[in-house]
């Protein structure tokens, strides 16, 4: 259908390129043939109604799901379908429902984020040579820098679970940044925040961009998205409806229709949302879905998944 990729004018080289990403769970197509490019120095927003497949798309990008079709490449290299290798390559993420290591301290959480950028193995840890101590010191210094950056330095020894909600979100970002990514994926970073906190998060995202890290962000808060993003893509029912600058997307009547509830073909009802969620819940990060090769694009948008996912 409409897959009008807008090539941004003048910005840097592509960091992330997703081409033809399709994700099916059993009979349900959650993401259909999505193209998306993020260039260096850019903040790109991904919007769409509930159940549009935004998080599923994120999971495809980060190797948590193996897309049924399509490839994801980072700086020109096709990414493997392993979550830890994606992070190693340079893509870090946060989660929609915060997933911190709740019983580790704030500092330890960020140190875990350093995992891919350090390589002291078991022997090194057991023998505690000078190299180990140096690496630990450096990791800690870097982690403290990030905690300063996110304003959590004073709470370094608190357990993550004891932080207030807004700070947990920040800690998740700090932890993701610790892996020194070239691209940061934020999944609803301001969900449940008050306006001041949202404002602070905005500042934080700009600051991250200014460090040369490209950002792809899912968000419901339109104000936030349109303030923040250089480019916005709108996902509806797993398909990319439109992509462009804030003005273009805001002015697109199909987007307005999708959000205001005027049925666009068949707007996803509550049941469909539930189905997507249920299918995702059952998906495993290893077992790929049945690799049917039927055309992805032309089919109707009301996928009635009769097939029981069990």
């Amino acid at each position: 259908m409409t897959t009008d990729t807008v090539t941004p004018a003048g910005t840097g080289t592509p960091v992330l390129h997703a081409s033809g990403v399709t994700m099916r769970f059993g009979g349900l197509t959650a993401v259909r043939n999505v193209e998306l490019t993020v260039n260096s120095g850019e903040i790109v927003g991904l919007i769409g109604p509930n159940g549009a497949g935004k998080t599923t798309f994120f999971n495809c990008l980060t190797g948590l799901y193996i897309p049924t079709e399509g490839t994801v490449s980072y700086k020109g290299k096709v990414l493997p379908h392993r979550s830890h290798l994606v992070t190693q390559a340079g893509i870090a993420r946060t989660f929609q429902n915060i997933r911190l290591f709740a019983n580790m301290t704030v500092l330890e959480n960020v140190l875990v984020g350093r995992h891919t950028r350090t390589k002291e193995g078991l022997w090194s840890a057991l023998l505690r040579g000078p190299g180990f101590k140096k690496a630990e010191r450096e990791s800690e210094a870097r982690a403290m820098e990030l905690l300063e950056f996110t304003g959590l330095a004073a709470k370094r020894d608190h357990l993550a679970r004891n932080l207030p909600y807004g700070e947990q979100r920040k800690l998740e970002i700090a932890r993701a940044l610790a892996s020194e990514p070239g691209l940061l994926l934020l999944d609803e970073p301001t969900a449940g925040m008050n306006p001041q906190e949202t404002r602070a998060t905005e500042e934080l995202v700009f600051a991250i961009r200014d460090q040369g890290i490209a950002v792809l962000v899912i968000e419901h808060d339109m104000r936030f998205i349109f303030n923040l993003c250089d480019r916005v893509a709108c996902l509806v029912q797993g398909e990319k409806l439109v992509e462009g600058t804030a003005e273009v997307v805001q002015g697109d009547e199909r987007v307005v229709a999708a959000y205001l509830g005027t049925p666009f073909e068949d707007a996803p009802g509550a049941e469909e949302v539930a189905e997507v969620e249920a299918a995702e819940a059952h998906a495993t990060d290893r077992a790929p879905g049945p690799d049917s090769t039927t055309g992805a694009t032309g089919t109707t948008s009301t996928t009635g998944p009769e097939g029981d996912p069990k």
Binding site: L64, T87, A92, S139
Partner: peptide, 24 residues
């Protein structure tokens, strides 16, 4: 008290998040 131990505890706490942090 090392990178390895932290990774273990991270896996114990939340394996999906640990993998998303680059832990094999």
């Amino acid at each position: 008290q090392s990178r390895i131990g932290r990774a273990w505890v991270a896996i114990r706490e939340d394996e999906t998040a640990a993998r998303a942090m680059g832990i094999n």
